[in-house]
Amino acid sequence: MSEPILALDGVVTDIGQYHILKGVSFEVPRGQVTMLLGRNGVGKTTTLRTIMGLWPARAGRILLDGEDIARAPVSNRAGQGVGFVPEDMGIFSDLTVEENMILAARSGPLDGARRDWLFAAFPPLRTFWRSEAGNLSGGQKQMLSIARAMAEERRLYLIDEPTKGLAPAIVSTMVGALRELKAQGASILMVEQNFSVARALGDRVVVMDDGVVVWTGTMAELAADTARQERLMGLSVEAH
């Protein structure tokens, strides 16, 4: 197999005086969806934010296509093609949906075909194109946040809990859109608490606990082994 799009090697992150990531190492293969799973508070969001540069890594390497970006400024990482959907969605609520998308397409105007594709995947974005993003519902904001990451082709997508707090109908819209993204060969690292969503989209799995990676494998392996799911994540397919 080719070189992974992203590799973390012994990444250590402190927040204030707390040691949150205690040497995280894993790989994200190119053109696949890697699910980052684990109980609440184990450091999944911190891992994504560290990759993006929003928390500084105190030690370790973060290799994007083999190049260490662990000390690069946030904007450079974005400029190198890392798209980010934060846990809190990070919507600019005083800006319109259109203005949010204009900012997301950094290298030039949003191209028409891509916009039509996003409109098809997320119809409310078309409806509320000229409205202030702050007036959108939670699900619509989540769609906008993901659409922003998709406004340009990215080398790697970091997506934090895209289905958090969403009604089932909207979850399936979301899964549909992410499936399309996956079908285009995108490389994705995604945190997802809803195991059925994780199973529907994931190729590979990285499980964290207390600031370190405790298991990696394929989604098929994990899905087939409920005992392992319970042990690693305190969840079972039945319960979710």
């Binding site: 993006m52 929003l54 400024p73 934060p86 990070g90 600019f92 609520s93 900012l103 997301a104 922003r148």
Partner: peptide, 24 residues
């Protein structure tokens, strides 16, 4: 203007502006 958009967005959420690739 785009620079104006960046300023307004930056006032609301500077982190996200950086994460979209702008040097705030």
């Amino acid at each position: 203007t785009k620079i104006g958009l960046i300023v307004r967005a930056g006032v609301q959420n500077g982190e996200m502006v950086e994460a979209l690739g702008y040097r705030l």
